[in-house]
């Protein structure tokens, strides 16, 4: 109905472009500001900056890895709620294999293979039986958590309340410890991000993913069926999950029933925080996961520092971080307001 729209002057177009760029940069700006505030607090308190930065990387890395892979799913306008459960499950199998073989390579390969298999099961089942992807992942969440829970319980070595499988052999612990470094983690993330960015922006597959997210019907009519590219997206997400699971194992040297329990939902937060629309499509970006994941973790750390002496602070931290999250998403979406309520 908004018939034809004629461009006013080049000037207006330029202004619009500048505005778009500002909005696009907002998530990055938010990350920079949050980082600056964090560093300021650390320095002002005479805390150890190096340790704190390492902490941030350690806390964020699994989330960011999983979220980076998950971008492929989100790009399609779909989402997977079982990512956390899948991380838990692949870490469980991974640690069993590692305990048996002591091979780091096998740990990573197993985690990736298992995670990709879970992803494939999700996507293939839903495409063969035409099931809504999301509900399939809800079912998968239960199944994976339960199976992993059973495996962990049966093989538990823990003395604590939560059953857990740990790497207890000191030689094996040393092997894991050797890669439990910030540099290794950053390297893994960088490699994976580069691969994802390459696939996403420089290959036919990536272009088609984005196109699919924008309009699946048109994509189908252009010979890009959701069933096929959905599977590819889930495979990419599986790789991210596998890497996250393996890195988690090197970090904690154990897997318990609570491992990665909040990753599934945090991925949503991270991706949206990073400036990507939940509906996917043309505005999807790989860096959203990285920017958003780190922003979210840093924000929580800042709030924890600021409120350290407040009673019930974890409640307040969560409230404030949720409010800031909504505020940033609100501002970032300002260009895309529509007359009716979004769904």
């Amino acid at each position: 109905m908004e018939e034809v729209l004629k461009s006013r002057s080049g000037d207006a177009v330029k202004k619009q472009k500048v505005k778009n760029i500002i909005i696009m940069l907002l998530p990055i700006a938010a990350l920079v500001v949050l980082f600056a505030v964090y560093v300021a607090i650390i320095l002002a308190n005479d805390y150890n900056l190096a340790i704190n930065l390492e902490t941030i990387v350690n806390q964020a890395i699994v989330l960011v890895l999983v979220a980076t892979g998950a971008i492929f799913i989100f790009t399609l306008g779909s989402f997977d709620i079982s990512l956390g459960a899948s991380t838990l499950f692949s870490a469980t199998v991974g640690i069993l294999v590692f305990n048996a073989t002591g091979s780091l390579l096998l740990l990573f390969l197993t985690c990736i293979a298992v995670a990709v298999a879970c992803s494939l099961l999700n996507s293939v089942l839903s495409s063969v039986f035409h099931l809504p992807m999301f509900v399939m992942t809800v079912a998968m969440l239960s199944v994976l958590t339960s199976i992993a829970g059973t495996i962990i319980t049966t093989n538990s070595t823990s003395a604590g309340a939560n059953p857990a499988i740990s790497v207890s052999d000191s030689v094996l612990r040393d092997i894991l410890g050797s890669v439990d470094t910030v540099w290794f983690k950053v390297l893994i993330l960088a490699l994976f991000a580069v691969v994802c960015i390459f696939v996403f922006n420089f290959t036919k597959v990536g272009r088609r993913q984005k196109f699919l997210g924008g309009n699946p019907v048109c994509a189908k009519m252009t010979g890009i069926p959701l069933s096929v590219y959905g599977i590819i997206a889930f495979v990419m997400a599986g790789i991210g999950v596998g890497l996250g699971a393996a890195v988690n194992v090197t970090y904690t040297m154990s897997v318990s029933t609570g491992t990665a329990s909040d990753i599934g939902m945090s991925v949503f937060i991270a991706i949206v925080f990073g400036g990507m629309p939940i509906s996917g499509g043309a505005r999807s970006r790989i860096y959203a996961a990285i920017v958003g994941g780190f922003s979210y973790i840093i924000l929580n750390n800042i709030l924890n520092l600021l409120l350290s002496s407040v009673d019930g602070r974890y409640g307040y931290v969560q409230i404030i971080s949720a409010v800031l999250f909504l505020a940033i998403v609100y501002v970032a979406s300002i260009n895309y307001r529509v007359k009716h309520l979004p769904r």
């Binding site: 272009r207 984005k210 196109f211 924008g214 309009n215 019907v217 048109c218 994509a219 009519m221 499509g281 043309a282 505005r283």
Partner: peptide, 12 residues
């Protein structure tokens, strides 16, 4: 609906 992805660019 079927021939265009409206939210994407001409290029895409």
């Amino acid at each position: 609906v079927e021939s265009l992805n409206l939210s994407a660019s001409i290029k895409d």
